[in-house]
Amino acid sequence: MTLDTGHQITMYRQMVRIREFEERVKRTFTDHPGVIRGHTHLADGAEASIVGSIAAMRPGDQAIATYRCHGYPIALGSDTSALMAEIYGRVGGICGGYGGSMHLADIARGFLGTSAIVAQNIPQGAGAAYAAQLRGRGDVVLTFFGDGATKQGAFHESLNVAALWRLPVVFIMENNSFSVTVRTEEEDANAAAGEPLATKAKAYSMPGTTIDGGDPLVVQQTVADAVARARAGDGPTLIESLVYRLSAHGNSIAPPGVPLHYPEHEAVAIYGAVEEYEAAKRGDPVPRFRARLIESGVLTGDQAGAIVDEAQAEMQAAVDFALNSPLPEPAAALNHVYA
């Protein structure tokens, strides 16, 4: 299947929107110190994987993810102003300021939320797929997680059940080579043996495949095939999407009063792998896809520039909205304890 040029331009636009959004989140730490509290995790570097995956969805399908979650709702069409306001802890936030960066959700657009605990969303994704199976409309659930999550028991238990019950779920592992700050080959027996992490699918009689997560068209094609398989009732697939996150795991960790910032990437800060990190930046999927679209005549340089300008304007508006949205009433803290 080849996507028509309109789709390719849409995918590029979504990638740029995610990148610009993340840039503004990062800049907030210097432009507006103290506005973002706690911990944020950025998706820069994974835009192609996110957008390619989401492009394989149709209305009725759902997605569930981890605490590195800003990209998915953007690609699904959530309002970036409401997303930014959530990260700023404002009333106008998509979760009213209750959740913050790690707990975005937009049920109307099929984004079922996240867990801030590694791998705990994987069984939840399988459960959502069970519900989809019961609904019987052919809906599929995309479950996103990182390479580190595959060492959690929840991964093993969930993939076993999903295979057994032939659940309509696609497990998308974004392998960014680091489990928080530890290199994957230091904590994963497959990686240590030089094997792809998709090898793990063998234990569940499930297809497992490893792809270049920096190419949105490859991702879209692979996920679409897995989605088709799931829709047809043939069960789950494990996709290992190789990405390289361009920012550190998250912002600095400090008690209140200490200004927060984004530290240097772990590859450089901990492992001293300067060249590896520079190479990753040279392989940045956003300019890579732009160059390809321009080369193949899908976009002109001017059009590509206009897409960036629009995204920047959108994110400026999101920041403005978020800054102007009031903080919640303190006593609202007691709402929503029970449904």
Partner: peptide, 10 residues
Amino acid sequence: QSGIFAESVN
């Protein structure tokens, strides 16, 4: 089938 098995084998 329990998660503890896969964690332990790894």
